[in-house]
């Protein structure tokens, strides 16, 4: 019995070790860029975006990395908009951000016009790399006539985990 416990422990150790080696090896490029804090900006484009791009007419906002967002945030050079729901916004958001849930913007796209200065630099974010709402909101903003629209794809999780200022409450 003692022997089989030892065998099982060795099996577990070996499996975990092989998985770690394979996993790190397979994803070494991704991990290297994540280590530098600039992980994989590219997101699999949504099917709509792909067809629109094939048509060659859709305006797509530019991704912007954390460091640049921080600079523009500190220098108050940009309007930061939060694409998540109002309730999520209340639970925590980038300090100074404006709540502009994608759902709301979709329902009433014309309300986006005139909300900010036409020349304002706008940075949209949501819940990080798995969340496409900021990209969709950014597109709506561009369609509404804003020219300088960026998407911060690291989103709230990356910002918060970097220890940068966050705020709670007040949509």
């Amino acid at each position: 019995m003692k022997n089989s416990l030892l065998v099982t422990s060795l099996e577990i150790a070996a499996i975990v070790l092989i998985a770690a080696v394979l996993g790190i090896g397979w994803n070494r490029t991704l991990l290297a860029s994540a280590w530098k804090g600039e992980a994989a900006i590219q997101q699999p484009a949504s099917p709509q975006a792909q067809t629109a791009q094939a048509g060659g007419e859709e305006l797509v906002p530019m991704p912007i990395p954390l460091a640049q967002v921080k600079d523009m945030h500190d220098g108050k050079q940009a309007v930061v908009i939060d694409a998540r729901s109002a309730s999520t916004f209340i639970q925590g958001h980038i300090a100074g951000a404006v709540s502009l849930p994608l759902e709301e913007a979709r329902k009433n796209p014309s309300s986006l016009k005139g909300r900010f200065s036409k020349d304002a630099t706008i940075i949209a974010y949501c819940n990080g790399f798995s969340c496409h709402d900021s990209m969709d909101l950014g597109k709506l903003m561009m369609q509404a006539g804003y020219a300088n629209v960026y998407v911060y794809e690291g989103g709230f999780p990356e910002w918060r985990d970097s220890g940068y200022p966050v705020a709670k409450g007040g949509a």
Binding site: A19, I24, A39, Q43, P44, F129, S130, C131, P157, D161
Partner: peptide, 28 residues
């Protein structure tokens, strides 16, 4: 990348650890 995003959304692991877990967990 999407899986790392899913892990990050749990807000349990810090930034790089989300990627490390996303790299290793599927192979495990």
């Amino acid at each position: 990348v999407a899986f790392a995003g899913s892990i990050a959304a749990y807000q349990i692991l810090p930034y790089f650890a989300s990627y490390l877990a996303a790299a290793i967990l599927p192979f495990l």
